[in-house]
Computed example of a mutant assay.
Amino acid sequence: MIRVLQGNRPHEPECPCCADARLGRRSLIGAGLGLLACTVPGGAEAQVARGTRRVSVQRAYTSDSFSGVYFADGRYVTEALRKLDWVFRDLSREEVTPMDPRLFDVMNAVAARMEANEAFQVISGYRSPETNAATARRSGRVSTVSLHMSGMAGDMRIPGRDSYAMARLAATMGLGGVGLYRRDGFVHLDCGQSRRW
């Protein structure tokens, strides 16, 4: 049996006609529109909540990989998240942390928009504070407050795909942070605030 975690489900709107028994003309029109919205099946939010989300990842420098469903029937799949946590672990310390599943949502959305079936190659996922500090000392491009330490970020590429095009597309989607490391050929994606560099 697959165990699942409760995902972020969209708030179901309260039907406005139940809120107040005395409705004026404007309230009545608003109530009618609200009632229509409450009863229309298959809205975009409902499809996202009930949809199936997949991700394919392969860890650079190891043979670790995951390809499959990590979100189904409005919930994150626990076993899939555990496997993804392992793939995204801090390799230098062999340290695993729970990754923020919203990162996989960002990756899923980017892959869908790119029409990419290939696996993301993960260069860096979770970084322990010690690993991040050591990396920051070696490179001025690494933040000392990196979202990698919170399990909210990954540096990745899709082999055979243009990293610049991927970064541009991800940035226009506004789902989180996007950084292009053109010289190294990878893109930083995170599920924090929308920003780019």
Rank of each mutant, 00 (worst) to 15 (best):
M1W: 08
I2C: 13
N8F: 08
N8V: 01
P10M: 09
H11P: 11
P13N: 00
P13D: 04
A19R: 00
A19M: 05
A21W: 12
L23M: 14
G30V: 10
L36M: 15
A37N: 15
P41Q: 12
R50S: 03
T52L: 04
S56N: 05
V57E: 08
Q58S: 12
A60M: 11
S67K: 07
V69G: 12
V69S: 12
F71A: 00
D73T: 05
G74Q: 13
Y76V: 00
V77Y: 09
T78V: 14
D85N: 06
V87G: 03
R89L: 06
D90I: 07
D90T: 10
R93I: 09
V96D: 12
P98Q: 05
M99D: 02
P101F: 15
R102A: 15
M107F: 04
A109K: 13
A111G: 15
N117Y: 12
I123C: 11
S124C: 12
R127D: 03
S128G: 06
S143V: 01
S146G: 07
S146A: 10
S150L: 08
A153V: 05
A153I: 04
G154H: 02
R161A: 01
D162A: 07
M166V: 00
M173C: 04
V178N: 02
G179T: 09
Y181S: 10
G192W: 03
Q193G: 14
